[in-house]
Write a protein that binds this DNA or RNA. Sequence first.
DNA 1: GACAAAAATGCAACGATATATCATTTTCCC
DNA 2: GGGAAAATGATATATCGTTGCATTTTTGTC
Lengths: 155, 155
Amino acid sequence: MASAASEDCVRLGLALAERLCQERKMRLTPLRRQVLICLLEAQGAVKAYDLIEMLHKTRKRFTPPSTIYRTLDFLVDCGLVHKIASINSYLPCTCQHHENSLLLFVCSRCKKAQEMDDPKLYVALKQRFEELGLALENGSIEMHGLCHACAKTEA
Amino acid sequence: MASAASEDCVRLGLALAERLCQERKMRLTPLRRQVLICLLEAQGAVKAYDLIEMLHKTRKRFTPPSTIYRTLDFLVDCGLVHKIASINSYLPCTCQHHENSLLLFVCSRCKKAQEMDDPKLYVALKQRFEELGLALENGSIEMHGLCHACAKTEA
DNA sequence: GACAAAAATGCAACGATATATCATTTTCCC
DNA sequence: GGGAAAATGATATATCGTTGCATTTTTGTC
């Protein structure tokens, strides 16, 4: 089910989460860890209720929505996961290096999401907004359009 | 209730809508017109179910969700209104001039939204995405952060 | 104007997404 | 081990959006 690349991704993501939680004295509980693994394995953005289903297969107890949303909030607050509001989905983020320069791209057709790191562009955006008295938040720029694959097959 | 500036806004918005619909042989029905007016008068982003309530005051019949969403879809397709997915809201757009260079800013605190036109920045973004095989869509860049007013009162 | 076709709207039910509240369990720390 | 704090579970409910089909309105044609 999980490819080698995916396994790598999971391992890296978990390692980062563990380091981060230790540093900040937060708890990477079994549930949080399990949710994070689900997200990392999915290789793409996942919806909250899909996570509930995924967890249902591996856990004895049913995990209610409130719990999932709390868990996701935790992971988002940690910066380990991005919420993509426009598709009600969550995307794990392994590469912590772009804390201040993240752009999210969502394909309007296939709904796949990907991150893009471009500090220069991000700074340009940020400055432009500051001129207007607006303070950009990190990791909250969502763009829509066609991805490479979908653009190809478009009529 | 409606200030002079707001009245101007409504007048301009309606004029644009009428011209656009005539050009494209589409129909600006009473309902569509009424929804557009509500949005223009609101001076900010409005939610679908709030529109239902607003319409309930001026119309005899209750307007069901399906109808509202269809109407909003129409207005969005026309380019007269932007959907802001991250706050489930709709924002009218009077200034048609920035068809290809629109950025939307949403305050994470007060949820107020505003448009920003910056062709240069937009082109830079677009080019950067094209390098990655991604084709940006118009009017679909949403950013979050603190607006001027909220940044001031922030602890 | 009468009529059929097409477009728009109304209606009811439902599905998907998210939150509130309180009970219970687990963990932490002394 | 015991009490406080944090996390999770359970239930109900609020919010957001869609589907399918009936009805009304508009359009185009004769």
